[in-house]
Simulated scan of single mutants.
Amino acid sequence: MTEAATAQLAFDGSGVDGSLFTAVTDFARDTKWLNTPLELWTNLGLGVFAVLMVLGWWNARRRGTRETTVALAAPVAVVAAFAAAEVVKKIVGEVRPCRSMPHAYIVDACPAPSDYAFPSGHTTVAAATVAALFLLDRRLSAITALFAVVEGFTRVYVGAHYPHDVLGSTLLALPVAYLTSLALRRWATPLVASLSTGALRPLLAGEPVAAPKHAR
């Protein structure tokens, strides 16, 4: 199938919240000094979520096998959410804003017609990380949520997605990642406990934090 035929068959999401999309992209046009930093962040910022998961794992090693299992499950949960988003993306087949609204101010390069918009893959990763870390560390999850909000905004700012793409990916990623983490915490904890007594102990079981000594 040609690219032109693919574009014609795709769903046009501009009728959902096109006006809100253009309000954000007009803001991008008026803040061109932010274009390059936010375009860099929208892609490179995904590395922040990887760092947050590594931080969660590092701290979990000192808290016990159950917490370590949840930390190790986090990237698996993110991958599961991303895979689900890719399936939905193929089913919906929503054409990118740069093709359905070509006169809008678009910062990001326009991808191929077969690279659909709904849901946002970047936001899926961000929201899934929030949910995956929720069972591990509420404070770390809250920090991750702040970065996720920024990630979602930048996807609209650069013109890569409509607001409903970002919202849809969030509503999809949160339950998928949370339930995946919950299931792995239940079923994989015995495996992690077994592995933590062998050669993998440095990766799975750090030294516990010593309790403070009370003065007599």
Score class of each variant (00 low, 15 high):
residue 66 R to S: 15
residue 66 R to G: 13
residue 66 R to P: 09
residue 67 E to P: 01
residue 67 E to A: 12
residue 68 T to W: 00
residue 68 T to F: 02
residue 68 T to R: 00
residue 68 T to N: 00
residue 68 T to L: 04
residue 69 T to F: 01
residue 69 T to I: 07
residue 69 T to Y: 04
residue 69 T to M: 00
residue 70 V to W: 00
residue 70 V to K: 03
residue 70 V to Y: 07
residue 70 V to A: 00
residue 71 A to H: 06
residue 71 A to Q: 03
residue 71 A to V: 05
residue 71 A to K: 06
residue 71 A to D: 04
residue 71 A to I: 00
residue 71 A to Y: 02
residue 71 A to M: 05
residue 72 L to N: 03
residue 72 L to E: 00
residue 72 L to C: 06
residue 72 L to M: 04
residue 72 L to K: 07
residue 72 L to A: 07
residue 73 A to L: 06
residue 73 A to M: 08
residue 73 A to W: 00
residue 74 A to T: 11
residue 74 A to I: 02
residue 74 A to K: 00
residue 74 A to E: 04
residue 74 A to F: 02
residue 74 A to M: 03
residue 74 A to L: 07
residue 75 P to D: 00
residue 75 P to T: 01
residue 76 V to L: 08
residue 76 V to F: 04
residue 76 V to D: 01
residue 77 A to S: 08
residue 77 A to P: 05
residue 77 A to K: 06
residue 77 A to Y: 02
residue 78 V to S: 05
residue 78 V to I: 11
residue 79 V to E: 07
residue 79 V to Q: 03
residue 79 V to R: 10
residue 79 V to T: 14
residue 80 A to W: 10
residue 80 A to N: 08
residue 80 A to I: 14
residue 80 A to R: 04
residue 81 A to K: 01
residue 81 A to W: 01
residue 82 F to C: 03
residue 82 F to P: 01
residue 82 F to N: 06
residue 82 F to V: 13
residue 83 A to P: 02
residue 83 A to T: 10
residue 83 A to G: 06
residue 84 A to K: 04
residue 84 A to T: 07
residue 84 A to S: 06
residue 85 A to S: 15
residue 85 A to D: 07
residue 85 A to V: 11
residue 85 A to P: 11
residue 86 E to D: 13
residue 86 E to L: 13
residue 87 V to E: 07
residue 87 V to T: 15
residue 87 V to Q: 11
residue 87 V to R: 06
residue 87 V to K: 02
residue 88 V to Q: 04
residue 88 V to I: 14
residue 89 K to A: 05
residue 89 K to R: 11
residue 90 K to N: 15
residue 90 K to Q: 15
residue 90 K to E: 15
residue 90 K to C: 13
residue 90 K to R: 15
residue 91 I to S: 09
residue 91 I to G: 14
residue 91 I to A: 13
residue 91 I to K: 14
residue 91 I to Y: 09
residue 91 I to E: 02
residue 91 I to V: 14
residue 91 I to R: 10
residue 91 I to L: 10
residue 92 V to Y: 08
residue 92 V to M: 11
residue 92 V to N: 12
residue 93 G to H: 14
residue 93 G to K: 13
residue 93 G to F: 12
residue 94 E to Q: 13
residue 94 E to D: 04
residue 94 E to G: 07
residue 95 V to H: 05
residue 95 V to M: 12
residue 95 V to Y: 01
residue 95 V to E: 01
residue 95 V to R: 12
residue 96 R to M: 09
residue 96 R to P: 01
residue 96 R to Q: 07
residue 96 R to W: 06
residue 96 R to K: 10
residue 97 P to F: 04
residue 97 P to R: 12
residue 97 P to D: 05
residue 97 P to C: 11
residue 97 P to V: 05
residue 97 P to Y: 08
residue 98 C to D: 08
residue 98 C to S: 15
residue 98 C to R: 09
